[in-house]
Design a protein around this nucleic acid. Structure first.
Lengths: 223, 223
DNA sequence: AGTCTTTTTTTGGTATACAAAAAGTTCCGG
DNA sequence: CCGGAACTTTTTGTATACCAAAAAAAGACT
């Protein structure tokens, strides 16, 4: 479908290929252990093999594909273990981010786009734009990490967010309303500079998301 | 010095180049913002530019170099902020790993090479093999993460360990004896299946390492 | 000296080629 | 009919040569 031949734009070709393949994977167009052949992709997107190789390398590091020496890359298949691992690591990093973000706000740092994202989400929910709701929810979480001010943390979390998008694409989530309420509380804690509260709220918010996603994925996987 | 021309061994060339350049960076042979030119490296190691590019890409993702579009890669310079960020993220992930490792041991999982690494460290300290001491200390921390059983966590921590090696190379650490004592206690907690104790011990052990490293790096950086 | 212009380097990318390892296929014998 | 052995085709990993365009460096000119 997106047999776009990419010309020289403003971004590196490898980046564009990465985005396109990622989009295809997240959209479920490569299901199960499909092979990603370099020549295939380079012909599909009208680029040479080099950008394709770099894109695949990045896809591997971000956990979307698995490569085997001399056998190339295959699309990973998400397991329940993957989801559990992801939620565990998120619990580590995002709760810390929330605490740090609150502490920094308490120390006078600006609160970023947190409130704004929440307002946008309100609109998106009311308008029924469910894609935007998902996107804004992810952006909210990302913004908290950004507000932590820890660049290494931001780096470390980036691949997790990629995986989250994938997972949430496959396994649907619980009520947008409920989630937004939790986001709202968390936002208030952070902007109020209440570090411990922010930590606790982030923890329960993330943990509450685990079961529904596991159930959703189990359904998508089993039958 | 390592003007080795790499032939086809068992590992991919890109991997070898990555290791060689990383080694050079960690050893301080590229200090400050030195540029890494593709052609330069490909001639130095007698490989084509392709493996060099992939190696540089990985070096960037692991935080050793920074690349700018159309200007290539330069070796990053470590700042005190980098060190603080690293310790913060380590506190997140490694304490969690310690807790999980202990919980898994309590649930009957094997204790891995933890004790063995500790014994080796004892020997290395007694023999005054300080390089080995550092290596074994890193291996101990890595083993704990491995014992957590969370593959995503293992993946997420990998780049941190790379940075740690770099930092510990520049800024020397506190007494090996003290550190080994702490490792011993932590090891006992994990192998004893005491999750909360393992968490606490891991926390204080990591935190105790922060100040000395900061001081050491400040000295290396200032004059 | 300080800016404008020209040259040189260097990156990002293309195309093509090739050895070697997988994967696939055919053929063969039990 | 089925399991392997031998052959063929793909595909990866790498090399080489080349190009456009952006940076960096070097001149040139007030």
């Amino acid at each position: 479908m997106p047999e776009t031949l990419t010309a020289r734009d403003d971004e590196a070709l490898a980046e564009q290929v990465y985005q396109l393949v990622l989009e295809a994977i997240v959209a479920g167009k490569y299901e199960q252990g499909a092979r990603l052949r370099e020549r295939e992709l380079s012909e599909l997107y009208n680029v040479s093999r080099i950008p394709v190789r770099e894109a695949i390398q990045r896809l591997e590091q971000d956990g979307f594909v698995e490569t085997f020496p001399r056998r190339g890359a295959v699309v990973r298949q998400l397991t329940l273990t993957d989801v559990n691992e992801l939620f565990d690591v998120r619990l580590c990093l995002e709760t810390f981010a929330a605490r740090m973000a609150a502490a920094r706000v308490a120390a006078g740092e600006p609160g970023g786009r947190l409130r704004e994202l929440l307002d946008d989400a309100r609109q998106a929910i009311d308008d029924g734009r469910s894609d935007d709701v998902v996107r804004l929810s992810a952006a909210f979480h990302a913004e908290i990490v950004r507000l932590s001010g820890n660049r290494l943390l931001i780096e470390s979390v980036k691949p997790l967010f990629g995986r989250m998008r994938w997972i949430f694409g496959l396994a649907h989530n619980r009520s947008n309303e409920l989630q937004r309420d939790e986001h709202m509380e968390l936002c208030n804690a952070i902007l109020g500079g209440k570090a411990d509260l922010a930590y606790t709220l982030a923890y329960s918010h993330i943990e509450l998301g685990r079961e529904p996603v596991l159930k959703g994925l189990a359904q998508t996987l089993e039958p």
